[in-house]
Write a protein that binds this DNA or RNA. Sequence first.
DNA 1: AACCCGTGGGG
DNA 2: TCCCCAAGGGT
Length: 291
Amino acid sequence: MTANPYRTAVLAWYDVNARDLPWRADDATPWGVLVSEVMLQQTPVARVLPAWEAWLERWPVPAALAAEPAGEAVRMWGRLGYPRRALRLHACAATIVQRHGGEVPSSHADLLALPGVGAYTAAAVASFAFGQRHAVLDTNVRRVLERVVNGREYPPKAPTGAEYRLAESLLPEEPAVAARWGVAVMELGALVCTARNPRCGECPVVDRCAWVLAGKPPHDGPPRRGQRYAGTDRQVRGRLLAVLREAPGPVPKSVLDAVWDEAAQRERALDGLVADGLVDPLETGDYALPS
DNA sequence: AACCCGTGGGG
DNA sequence: TCCCCAAGGGT
């Protein structure tokens, strides 16, 4: 008897349906888990897989990455998107070497203090890499709980205190089981309880799902609009950085100028990249990835 | 709290 | 086609 009526069914489902992802392998290190979690922030698993393999091959421990220029991390990041994550992962490696003896810290507080590691990632690494008991509240878990428990199609835009309390209340007592529960719910959200066209026929808790029992009422309230991309500074930044990533060395400004015709926006985007530390303006007038 | 930050695939 | 979405975080 437990306070979590879904636990047995979800864990049994995960036993059978868990994907064989390399960062879940027995020989995966905490560093490998941390790298995977940062790469998976807003980037789909399929695109992360090859990048993760290459990254861990080149930098199997934090010290290996910390010994190289930040620009190498940005280059290896490739087209995963949000390249500031590469910079932060490099800064993570430096911090781990300087403050933690080269070992990824295991406490939630120490993890949270690392650059680019927020509430979700800290909980995920503490749970998945170190077997601790933490509520991992990612987009998948939030959607599953919103449907199964609250009977609504989609959770609020940002995680609420109520959501954290709910996730905590469902967490099994034993740390190892709690960790398994967290990754299992995430997997259920990723494979079955998807944002669009959920496969309720394959769901282990469909008979206890408040949303299904209510007749799958569609999301009401304000439309969940995504952010525009075409024509934004983000698109320009992406083009500029793509040129620098693919170049073997410093690039003349004239080459960067060719990626976008509107000068004001182009300059603003380039200035932003410099301000973020993703691009170095050289004294020669050329631009390069940071050293 | 709202907005910014990349990229590509699927429905 | 176009829109939505993907293991978020920082400011």
